[in-house]
Structure formats: structure tokens, C-alpha cells
Nucleic acid binder design. Structure first.
Lengths: 233, 233
DNA sequence: GTAAATCCTTGACTGTGGTCAAGCGACGCG
DNA sequence: CGCGTCGCTTGACCACAGTCAAGGATTTAC
């Protein structure tokens, strides 16, 4: 176990709770693997033989209901788990996971993990907390989609990226390219571009890369709050 | 414990798994209550002192991010749990629960329940399965919102209400009024009405009540599949 | 250095769905 | 019986975002 892995575990909401001997046992039935961008980790509908912890890089979580159309649900980074919920529900992955950039992942065998659970009460509790947190995130997501415009969604997303407790000017690094960001927010790249253009008048500067500069995060907050039509001037 | 309650428990994905002595213990720290329509069960942001099982009637789950705007996430009926995820994540309710019609609910104390968990491994496992299933539902929901039109969303919803394995003509009873159904699907009542109008040419008949008649469920399936533009004719 | 390629932006047009407002039809009540 | 209300439907209009297509700007290749 190297430094990268140790850090990913520390960032994980649930693996970080595991005592050392459980981690050791986990190594016995899991492996780390390096994959390049666009590599498929598992596919929606696949039997859940394993789930993954992202160690480095980024992994996209996709929903694919019809064969021709799919949508990016979330971008996972170091410390995030992918596909662990399938182990407890129907044994079939609900979403597709694909690397967005060259990444390193920890692959955990589902059945071995399930056996492991039999005598570790706190693991299950941690998993339950993780699942609840995700559920909370989904609720937030659905609300955003239902009643926020594209520009507001972007502003809100930037705020959440900046983290709470920030003041004044903030430098933000997007977790993925603009194209994927658009998908993640449920819009087209063109719309994202226009949304950025609108936010420019609120002090948001974005170049061609993944870096975004916000002159005053408070102004963004105010924009999101503004209960109704600021006609996006 | 009466017949109504027994039936609600049988329909619950998780309480139905509990052995009799755990149920008995559960009674010790929970109570049933009758509420009228529009009664508030708990509010988003409230400390999670209890969660609820719907025994009869229907309960709406709302998300409220800004004080002025809220959206209906889901309609819960007999056997569904409301607010149980908060017990494991941050101890604060993520959503607001309000009765949509006169209802009967089982109120379970959160802290007592948490203590109860300490020695019941399988309860936690069942809860985890429930949370995973909900997560799966959320994923489905987000996908629908991102890439389906209002009419498709309605058609898909009717199909899921009909249940799988049906053929030919199906009689469907909506879980709530048209107004709430519209909110649940993330659209306005006017749009819902238009969506029903479009589906009329596919053999869907709806009056002013909660009853919907589908002449051929297969036609609906085909409509949803039709990968792209059937220009909703 | 020029050319190609990639990424982001902008523009013009269209369509879906929200908004506002009016029009039913059913039911309840005086 | 006429009047009001309520739930649903329709119509007219408009705005936001998707589509198609072109235009910069920066990087890579030769």
C-alpha cells in the first residue's frame, strides 16, 4: 500500500473508518489497477461482481436507460466509491462507470466483501451513511434540474466547488473538461458556454482550460439567491 | 397492532424482514398517529428525531432548497419509509414530508432506533438495501429529467404504474391528483394536460379523476422506445 | 512558419415547455 | 333552477435551451 492509495482511503467517507485489520483483510480480495481514459470499469446491467474505489484520476458515472442515449450522472475523484450500492440491491449495476482520464482504481470483489460484512457491523453502518449521503446528493440534483435554469445550475455548481466558508476572490479547478461539465449539469456544451458568458458580468472568468476565477464568490451567492427573474442580464 | 398496520409492514421492504421480537421492541419506542391532509410530518433541516412509515393514505416528499420554491420529489404510499436516511447522515432531514391526504403513519424515534440497531445486524443490512434501492430510483429519475420530454416521462410513469408483465388494456389508478402528479414529474399541470392529450392518440384515456385507462400498454412501450422524434403527433 | 486540429465561443433558427388567460364541465349550494 | 366554485383543458404568447453551422483562438505536427 503506497502513498496514493493511503491518501485515497483517507479521503473515502467509508474506508477511512475501517480499522487496520479490516483494511488488511480487504487487500486479500481486492487489487489496484491502472486504466487509461475511456476505459470501462463496469456497465449498467452487469452483474455486480466488484465495485471500485477511485485512487487517482477521475471516473464518470453514466446512466444508460436506452442503448442510444446516456447521461453523465457524476464525476468521481479520489476517495469516491463506484457501484457499491449494487452489492446490496439486486446485484446488478444501476449505472455505467468509465474512466474520464488515465486513472488508478481499487477493485473490490463483491461476494468476498459481502462475506467480510458478516462479522463487521460498523462497516455496514458506514456504508449506510455513505448511501444516505448519496441519496441526499441525488435529492439536491433532482431539485436543481427541476427548478433551476442552466446559468443558475452552473453558478450553484461553482459555489459548491469553491467550498463553504470562502470569501472574496476564489480560484476554482474544474474536476473535468468543459464538455463533461456540461453533461454533468444536464446541458449542451454550447449552453454551458453561454452560461459562463452570462456569469462573466458577475465576475467569473473562464479560459479554455479547467481553471475558473471568481472575483467575488458573494456575488455568485447573491445571484443564486435572487429568488426570481434577474433576467440573466 | 391491527390489520392496516400489519399490511403496511408486509409491504415495507425493510420492516417486513424483521423477526417478531424486533417488531415488538419497535413498538416500544414508536407510535401510530392519524394526520389530515397537508399535515407536516417533518421539515427539511429539522433534526431527525424520528422517521415515519406510511400506514394508510399518501405522503409527499418535498425538497426545499430556497424558502420560496420547493418541488415534489416523490409520493409515498403504504409501506414506504420517510426520512430514515437522515438517521445515518448528518442527523438532519434532507427533505420535507407532508401528508397529501388524511393518512395514518407510524412514527419511530430515531435515537431509540439507533440503539436498537446496535445488536441487530440484519436490520442494518435491510436498511442498506432500501437505501440502495432508493439511490437506484434517484438515478432513474435524474436520467428521465435530463433526457426525456414531458410526454415521454408521463408515458414511462404510466408504464411503471401499470407494473411489468401486463398486456393489452390496463386500468391504472394514479397515486395522487393530477396537480401533484405534474409536480412529481417535474412539470406544470398545463403541460401534464397536454401530455395526456398527446398520449390520447396512443389509446390513453383520462377523465377528471385519478383513473386512467390504457387500451394497449404495448403501444405505450413502443412510444417510449421510439429512439427519437416521433414528433409527438 | 504554415497548416491542421482541437476546443471554445457566437450566431441564427427552432421547439419544448412555462406563463397568462380564458373556456369548459362537474358538482355543491342556496 | 341558476349561480358559484373547482379541477381540468385549450389557446396564445414567449423565453430558455437544443440544433446546426460558422468563426476565433490555442496547441500540435510537419
Amino acid at each position: 500500500m503506497d502513498a496514493e492509495l493511503a491518501q485515497a482511503i483517507a479521503q473515502s467517507s467509508f474506508l477511512s473508518l475501517l480499522p487496520a485489520d479490516d483494511l488488511k483483510r480487504l487487500w486479500g480480495y481486492s487489487e489496484t489497477r491502472r486504466v487509461d481514459g475511456d476505459a470501462l470499469l463496469f456497465h449498467s446491467g452487469d452483474p455486480a461482481e466488484h465495485f471500485c474505489l477511485v485512487v487517482t484520476g477521475s471516473v464518470g458515472l453514466y446512466s444508460r436507460e436506452t442503448p442510444d442515449r446516456e447521461t453523465l450522472l457524476d464525476v468521481l475523484v479520489a476517495g469516491d466509491l463506484a457501484g457499491e450500492e449494487a452489492v446490496f440491491d439486486r446485484g446488478v449495476h444501476a449505472s455505467t462507470a468509465r474512466a474520464l482520464s488515465p486513472s488508478r482504481v481499487l477493485i473490490v470483489g463483491a461476494s468476498a466483501f459481502f462475506t467480510h460484512l458478516d462479522d463487521r457491523f460498523d462497516i455496514v453502518l458506514a456504508l449506510l451513511a455513505g448511501a444516505s449521503a448519496r441519496l441526499r446528493g441525488s435529492i439536491h440534483e433532482i431539485t436543481e434540474l427541476k427548478l433551476r435554469s442552466t446559468t443558475r445550475r452552473l453558478a450553484n455548481f461553482l459555489i459548491s466547488l469553491a467550498g463553504s466558508g470562502k470569501e472574496g476572490a476564489v480560484q476554482i479547478v474544474l474536476p473535468s473538461g468543459k464538455h463533461q461539465l456540461a453533461a454533468r449539469l444536464g446541458m449542451k456544451p454550447e449552453s454551458l458556454s453561454r452560461a459562463f458568458a452570462k456569469l462573466r458580468s458577475f465576475g467569473v472568468t473562464s479560459g479554455r482550460g479547467d481553471d475558473v476565477l471568481v472575483k467575488d464568490i458573494g456575488a455568485l451567492h447573491r445571484y443564486c439567491r435572487s429568488s426570481d427573474f434577474t433576467p440573466d442580464a
